[in-house]
Design a protein around this nucleic acid. Structure first.
Lengths: 368, 368
DNA sequence: GATATTTAAGCAATCGATTGCATGAATTTG
DNA sequence: CAAATTCATGCAATCGATTGCTTAAATATC
């Protein structure tokens, strides 16, 4: 026994094609063919069987690194997301996996933290590793790095956002329809003064949903008052609360707040609770996304359910088409969304809460 | 222009060492050395600089696949988890990434869904891809597949559980101390009749925390009544609710329920709310893990905060030691936990709720 | 100043699988 | 039955980087 064999982490020798060739007395190329489901049809059945059973008994496992070097296909895709700890991404990843894993693909997931420099570096990391394609679920409205990679010929699919003026296929949820359905729901409950807490405008969903809100309100003849639109600087609870307090401070009456996502809505509800303003009694609040655990918080949030798993599946499907050189891959896939009515929305009250006297302002706000 | 060049997804030709060699008039091996921070010291400074700048201007990016084939190191690690959509895993992954990514490692994450067959297959997938090591955060108490892989010489670190009688290094949170601190907290509030909703006994955390509960109760002279222990068959809200109702149905008095994780606790609280039993007024409830968004549900859950990011970091650190052949890697790392007191726990009431008349049982339960 | 030593750079094998082409045997065809 | 065709298999180059060994030049030593 040599000292090397005694090393603690000495991997057991892997079986290679060469080993099988030696064992069966044929050439490695014949072994390679015998183990390829297509090529093996060109071999004598007896030889193919002999090789296959030898491979099995020896415990052969193909070395994908070696195959990848030769074929220039690694059977690996890169998945770029802002942050895996954001609850909307894990289901997307499972959706991607559900399509690609059965076909022998693995994915390398990287988190950009929405930092363009980091993203650029990570794209290089993925390319160094020879990924066959990339699914890009970042959120910034423009990112030159991925467009450049696509330009270089790397197959790319974007998820939840489009890159303007680029031929990169995209998968998006129908935000437009979701906002529209939600606004209709509120109007049907009698609300006419509807505020909006929008997401950051440098994020595609932030911008898209604000634009959708304006458009939907216009279509439905709901008056949009710019004073009733607050723009959050992050998609989180603290910003939701801050924006809601800003809305109240303006003294403009409103009976409902349509928020650009669930976390903003949860923050808004929290702020209402602290001010002892009833939800949905005095002000209705709505979210967007239908994130997990929403059923646990009171009041349960009325929201728009978007497809996460489904979006991942769709993105993987389109990427596969690109990988197979199928030029009929759709440029844009729009997934339907679903209104989920729970109990954070109710009929509009006669008198908007925002004009009632506030606890710390006995004179009350002046209604314009 | 040939037809091949016209193909839609023709990758731009990659720059290789050979290209740089041709450009600079040296041999590829010299180029290879010039670009290796250690080896380049053996070269004339002038030559090294010339090659390095040529590499930069040509936009050279090393092909890790080729390097991996030759060196048998892919700079890739496998991470095996039950399910990425379980909120405790994403922070662990970020913790792993925080250590490995700066060193040039990438990770391939696979979800087992706690299915041993799937796990076995996925371990093979990782090995086929030549991962340098594996971090195994599965939850089943015994899994032969990973032990076998470790036996074959693959560097493995387990996270959140130990494999009995195996030399595989493990990272665990101090469940024992967490349960103990929690029990002390309840006792300090005056609780003496404390129920336990345990997790599934085929999962390591389920078993560990139940054992810890018995031991802690023993140490603290809190009487443990087996009738006040319910074993959930899954770690979810529905099971938490079911177990709590079972406890109530037994008619044994108790004023607090220590649950083996947050989701069981949330389910228990939900069940109490439906029965109009006050929490913490009549029954205190505690969780374990401190998952995200707990601050949004009322009452806010008293729980034990475990390190997730930290556990990932620690696991990656130990794996690195293994990869570098450092034999001083700790066999076991136990991370400290922290009691987080919120408002689902309060002083023990005089009369346990479980012996008060139930709404649907006016006669009341008989106290034994 | 001749030999020994250090140093820089080139040579070529190697990792394991794939694949176009060559070869020789078996089969078909005229 | 000879020529043509088909077919199964072998041969060898290839993918791109790494690395032990060799060579040749430069420097040091006696």
């Amino acid at each position: 026994m040599t000292s090397v064999e005694g090393s603690k982490y000495m991997l057991k020798k892997r079986i290679t094609l060469k080993d099988i060739a030696r064992e069966t007395g044929v050439h490695v190329s014949t072994v390679s063919r015998a183990l390829d489901p297509v090529e093996c049809k060109h071999l004598t059945e007896e030889v193919a069987n002999r090789i296959q059973s030898a491979a099995k008994t020896l415990g052969y496992r193909p070395n994908r690194i070696a195959a990848g070097l030769r074929t220039n296909r690694t059977m690996t895709v890169g998945v770029i997301i802002p942050d895996i700890t954001n609850v909307i991404f894990p289901p997307i990843l499972r959706g991607i996996e559900s399509v690609l894993e059965p076909l022998g693909y693995a994915s390398i997931i990287v988190n950009t933290d929405s930092d363009p420099e980091r993203e650029e570096r990570l794209i290089d990391v993925l390319r160094d590793r020879g990924v066959d394609g990339v699914i890009h679920a970042a959120v910034l409205r423009n990112d030159p790095a991925i467009a450049k990679a696509a330009d270089d010929g790397l197959p790319v699919v974007t998820l939840n956002r489009k890159v303007d003026g680029s031929p990169i296929p995209s998968i998006v949820n129908d935000d437009d329809s979701g906002i529209c359905q939600m606004l209709r729901h509120l109007r049907d409950l009698g609300h006419t003064r509807i505020a909006h807490i929008s997401g950051p405008q440098d994020l595609s969903t932030g911008q898209l949903r604000l634009a959708a809100f304006r458009r939907a309100a216009d279509d439905m003849n709901v008056a949009v008052n710019d004073e009733l639109i607050e723009v959050a600087s992050r998609f989180d609870e603290a910003e939701g609360a801050r924006c809601l307090l800003n809305l109240l401070a303006k003294g403009k009456p409103f009976t409902a707040v349509l928020c650009a996502n669930d976390r903003l809505a949860l923050g808004a509800i929290e702020a209402l609770r602290e001010r002892s303003i009833g939800c949905p009694g005095q002000i209705s609040v709505t979210g967007f996304n239908d994130m997990p655990f929403l059923n646990l918080v009171q009041p349960q949030l009325t929201t728009v359910r978007i497809q996460q798993f489904g979006a991942g599946k769709a993105a993987a499907g389109v990427l596969l088409q690109l990988l197979n050189g199928d030029s009929s891959a759709p440029r844009e896939t729009i997934l339907p969304v679903e209104l989920v009515v729970r109990n954070s929305t109710g009929s509009a009250p006669e008198i908007p809460a925002s004009v009632l006297p506030k606890p710390n302002d006995p004179a009350g706000a002046i209604q314009q």
